[in-house]
């Protein structure tokens, strides 16, 4: 057990109760007040992308879906490739700060905070391969690690590198239009059987869903049976 909160560095005070003695306790890594600020997504969500429907304007909700996903699914180029995305947390200001420290400042240790939750969700989703969204070589060197792969590693799970980047520009600097109209951002690595497999893509944030859909399309065209995604946060 860590003695200090990994987010705010305050000392962690252990609360001893009967369960401390009788059950194997989950390791505490963050203090209660930081934990409180991580908001899990609850209530009605878009049945494809996990977007919390109660939090968006009614004009962007079409039945059980958000209008973005409706748009994707009406587009014959993208229809049906990505079966769905499960996001765990709301991308609130607190998580924004945490993810920025994790990914951009490179505070690798923060991956541990999400390990347990991630592991539980991944178990429910029964996949043949867990595929972290790859970074370009330059970006991976710059950051020192791939944030999606690190999440899996810290959860004690094995990554399969089915994909690699074809070129590398920062996604966050592009508009939605730019992202969607990129010709091809991934290619397949060899030596894996893809045909008939259930593939779970892993990434830190779902923003427009375009990265994940590019990956899904490529994998489905290569014969994958089912491609879905798990992301830490839904922005």
């Amino acid at each position: 057990m860590s003695e200090y909160c990994l987010f705010c560095h305050e000392e962690l005070i252990e609360h001893i109760s009967w369960s401390t003695f009788f059950s194997k306790r989950e390791e505490e890594l963050v203090c209660p007040s930081c934990q409180e600020q991580l908001e899990e997504i609850t209530g009605k969500r878009c049945d494809i992308c996990s977007r919390p429907l109660e939090r968006i304007d009614a004009q962007y909700v079409v039945g059980t879906r958000c209008s973005d996903c409706v748009r994707w699914e009406n587009d014959s180029e993208w229809q049906g490739y990505l079966a769905g995305n499960l996001s765990i947390y709301l991308y609130n200001d607190f998580l924004k700060e945490i993810i920025s420290q994790y990914k951009f400042r490179g505070d690798y240790l923060l991956a541990k905070v999400f390990a347990q939750k991630l592991k539980t969700s991944i178990r429910m989703l029964h996949a043949d391969y867990l595929v972290p969204i790859p970074l370009s070589t330059e970006r991976q060197f710059e950051r020192g690690f791939n944030q999606a792969e690190a999440l899996l590693r810290e959860a004690g799970l094995h990554s399969t590198h089915l994909l690699q980047r074809t070129h590398g520009e920062k996604q966050s600097k592009k508009s939605r239009e730019d992202r969607i109209h990129l010709s091809q951002i991934f290619q397949l690595t060899d030596s894996f059987v893809i045909s008939g497999k259930r593939i779970l893509l892993i990434d830190d944030i779902y923003t427009t869903g375009s990265t994940l859909r590019h990956a899904a399309k490529l994998l489905r065209k290569a014969g994958a049976d089912y491609v879905f995604a798990l992301t830490l946060a839904r922005s």
């Binding site: 560095h9 420290q101 400042r105 490179g106 240790l109 991976q140 020192g144 690690f145």
Partner: peptide, 25 residues
Amino acid sequence: LFSSFPCSRCRELCTYCRKCIMMGR
């Protein structure tokens, strides 16, 4: 306030300082 990670820059387990990480690792 230190931690280690498998680093793509040196391909080793690399120890880093968390205290001043806000100024880059």
